[in-house]
Design a protein around this nucleic acid. Structure first.
Length: 562
DNA sequence: TAAGAGGGAA
DNA sequence: ATTAGTCCCTCTTA
C-alpha cells in the first residue's frame, strides 16, 4: 500500500482521501489550499474543488500548475481526462477581467478590461449588468462609474468571472499612531505570522489593500487588525459581532497604541460616539424599527473619511452590511475570521465585496509551533437506558433528537471525566437549559446561562480563573462571551444542529497555550444509535478539515478508566 | 441620568 | 431543523 497514493480524484472535482493511508496528513495539507471538505465519514474524507476555492487559492498566488502538481502527487490512479483542463480554465478566470482606474480620466470613472472581446460581449449582454451602464470604449474595454464598482464585481462573480480589482483606494483622513511599548520596558513585537498576515493584506502590487485573513481562535486577530491600522496611519471603522468584543478592541487599541481614549469611540446601543477610530457592532448597523423600516445607522460608513474598515468575524457579516459595503469599494477593507465557511452560503459576496483570502494560517501549524495548545479530541458514545430507548423509539422529529441530546446517562460520564481532571479548569458546555440545570446540580458546579446577571457572571468567571471554582457549566453564552475565561478541558454535552462554527468556537475556548506540556482536552458526548451521531459528524467537519481527529470511545471505556 | 424591564429583530 | 442568547430601542422608575 505504501507505493500507492492517498487520494482518488474524480471527474466531478471531488477528491476522496483515505484516512488510514500513510500519506494522509501530507495530502490533507495540500488539499486544504484549494479544496473544501464536504464529508468526513471514518474511512474516506470527501473534498470538493469548487470554483471559489480555486479563486481563493489563485489570489494567494497558487497557479493552476501548482494545483495540478499537487493533485498528481496525491492521486492514486492518476487524474481523469479533462479535469486538469477544467481546473486551468477555472483558475484562469480570475484575472481575465480587470478593473482599474481610468488611465487619463479626470473624473472617478473606472475601466473594466477583458482578456478577450467575446468575454466582454457576453458579460455585458447578461441582464444583471444592464443597469450598471457599462460604456464600451474599445473591443476589450468598458467604462463604468466608480459608484458601481461593488455591484459590478458581485454580478460578474455570479456570472462566473471574479474581477481582479486594481482600482485602488482613497487614502482617508490621516491619523498618527504607534505601538506603545509593553509594560516591562519591552517593545511590543508582533509574532512572525502576524507580520506575514499584515504584509499579505497590504500586498506587493496594486492588488492588496482589501481581503480576508484567516486565522484560528487565539492567534491574535485583534493585534493583526491594529497592526494593519498602524501601517495605514488613517482613521478607521471597526465592525464586530458583540459589545464585549467592542470593549475588547477599544481596550487593546488604547493600551497597545499611542491612541488616547478620546480618539477611540464606541458606537453601540449604549453610546454613539464617532471618533477617529470607531468600533461598532454589526447589529446596530442592521437595526430597524420595523421590518420595512430604514437602516438608520448605516450612515456610520460615511460619517468620517475612513481610510480603513475592519470587518471582524467576517463569517457573521449580515446581508445588509454587504449591501452597504458594495457602496464603499474605494475604502480599504480588512476581513478577519477563523473560517471562511458561512452557514448561509454568502462566501462569494465575501470574495467580491471584502476581498479574496490573502492569508491563511492552519490550526495545526500554530499548534506545532506552540502558539496554541495541543488538543486531544474524543467523542464518547453514551448508550440509552432501556426506558429512554423505548421512549426514543416512539418519539418523532425534534422530540426524538432532544430526547437523545438530553440523555441522562451523560451525567455519569461527565462525573467520570471530571475525576480524570482534578486540577480543574473544566467547562461543561451544552444547549438545553433543563439538561444543564440537572447536570450542574448533579456534579455540584455553578451554571451560567443567559439569565445569569452580568455581575454574577463576572464573579464566577473570576473565581474560575483563580481556580476556586474548578468546573463551570455554561449554556450557549459560551458561544458569545468574549470574557469567558480560558480553560484546559471542555466537555460538550449537547450542541445545535451540525453547526461547524459552534464546534470551532467551543474548541477555541481551550486553545490558549498551557503551562507545562501545553495540552488540552475536548470531549463530546453523543448518544449512541441516535440522530446525534449524524449531527456530531457534521459539527466536527470544520475541525477535521483543520486536521483534528476525534478518537471515538465507548461509555464503558470511560467508566472503567481506560 | 442611570438602571432595569419588556418587546422586536435577525 | 430547534433552542437560547444577544443587541437595540422605548418606556418606566427613582
Amino acid at each position: 500500500m505504501n507505493d500507492l497514493k492517498a487520494c482518488i480524484v474524480q471527474r466531478d472535482r471531488t477528491v476522496l482521501l483515505e484516512c488510514a493511508h500513510p500519506g494522509f496528513e501530507a495530502a490533507r495539507e495540500k488539499l486544504a489550499r484549494f479544496a473544501e471538505l464536504v464529508k468526513s465519514p471514518s474511512a474516506f474524507h470527501t473534498y470538493r474543488i469548487t470554483p471559489l476555492s480555486l479563486w481563493n487559492a489563485a489570489a494567494l498566488g497558487c497557479t493552476a500548475e501548482d494545483i495540478a502538481a499537487d493533485l498528481e502527487s496525491i492521486a492514486r490512479w492518476g487524474l481523469p481526462a479533462g479535469l486538469l483542463q477544467e481546473i486551468r480554465g477555472l483558475v484562469s478566470r480570475y484575472g481575465k477581467l480587470m478593473l482599474e482606474r481610468e488611465a487619463d480620466g479626470e473624473g472617478d470613472a473606472l475601466c473594466l478590461t477583458a482578456a478577450d472581446s467575446r468575454l466582454l460581449d457576453e458579460a455585458i449582454a447578461s441582464p444583471a449588468l444592464s443597469e450598471l451602464m457599462l460604456d464600451r470604449i474599445s473591443p476589450v474595454q468598458a467604462r463604468i462609474s466608480a459608484a458601481a464598482r461593488g455591484r459590478l464585481k458581485q454580478e460578474l462573480m455570479r456570472y462566473g468571472f471574479p474581477v481582479l480589482d486594481l482600482a485602488g483606494y482613497h487614502e482617508g483622513q490621516a491619523l498618527r499612531l504607534q505601538w506603545q511599548n509593553g509594560g516591562e520596558g519591552k517593545p511590543f513585537a508582533l509574532r512572525s505570522y502576524q507580520t506575514e498576515a499584515v504584509e499579505a493584506f497590504e500586498g506587493v502590487t496594486g492588488s492588496g489593500g482589501s481581503g480576508v485573513l484567516v486565522l484560528p481562535c487565539g492567534a491574535g486577530k485583534t493585534i493583526i487588525g491594529i497592526a494593519a491600522l498602524e501601517r495605514q496611519q488613517c482613521e478607521c471603522l471597526i465592525l464586530t459581532s458583540n459589545t464585549t468584543s467592542v470593549e475588547q478592541w477599544i481596550r487593546e487599541l488604547t493600551e497597545k497604541t499611542t491612541l488616547k481614549p478620546d480618539q477611540v469611540g464606541q458606537y453601540t446601543g449604549e453610546r454613539k460616539e464617532v471618533k477617529p477610530v470607531t468600533v461598532a457592532t454589526y447589529q446596530i448597523l442592521t437595526h430597524r424599527r420595523s421590518k420595512e423600516g430604514e437602516f438608520e445607522h448605516m450612515k456610520l460608513f460615511n460619517e468620517r473619511n475612513w481610510g480603513l474598515i475592519i470587518y471582524d468575524e467576517v463569517h457573521l457579516l449580515p446581508a445588509p452590511v454587504f449591501r452597504a459595503t458594495a457602496e464603499i469599494q474605494a475604502t480599504r477593507r480588512l476581513g478577519l475570521t477563523a473560517t471562511l465557511v458561512r452557514e448561509d452560503g454568502c462566501e462569494q459576496d465575501v470574495f467580491s465585496l471584502i476581498g479574496p483570502k490573502r492569508y491563511e494560517m492552519p490550526w495545526k501549524e500554530l499548534e506545532a509551533k506552540g502558539w496554541i495548545a495541543r488538543v486531544e479530541c474524543s467523542e464518547i458514545r453514551v448508550p440509552m437506558d432501556a426506558a429512554l430507548r423505548e421512549k426514543h423509539a416512539y418519539a418523532e422529529g425534534k422530540e426524538k433528537f432532544r430526547l437523545a441530546a438530553e440523555n441522562p446517562g451523560k451525567t455519569a460520564i461527565v462525573a467520570d471525566l471530571l475525576k480524570r481532571h482534578p486540577q480543574g479548569g473544566v467547562l461543561v458546555i451544552g444547549q438545553y437549559l433543563d439538561q444543564l440545570q440537572a447536570l450542574a446540580a448533579a456534579i455540584g458546579a455553578p451554571l451560567i446561562s443567559g439569565r445569569t446577571p452580568q455581575r454574577q457572571r463576572t464573579a464566577l468567571f473570576a473565581s474560575f480563573r483563580k481556580g476556586d471554582t474548578p468546573v463551570l457549566v455554561v449554556s450557549k453564552v459560551a458561544n458569545f462571551a468574549v470574557d469567558l475565561p480560558d480553560a484546559s478541558v471542555a466537555i460538550e454535552v449537547s450542541g445545535s444542529f451540525g453547526s461547524r462554527q459552534e464546534e470551532a468556537q467551543r474548541l477555541g475556548r481551550i486553545l490558549r497555550p498551557k503551562a507545562g506540556d501545553n495540552r488540552a482536552y475536548f470531549y463530546t458526548l453523543v448518544t449512541e444509535n441516535s440522530k446525534e451521531e449524524e449531527f456530531a459528524v457534521k459539527r466536527q467537519m470544520f475541525l477535521v478539515e483543520q486536521g483534528y481527529e476525534y478518537a471515538v470511545h465507548s461509555a464503558r471505556e470511560v467508566r472503567s478508566g481506560t
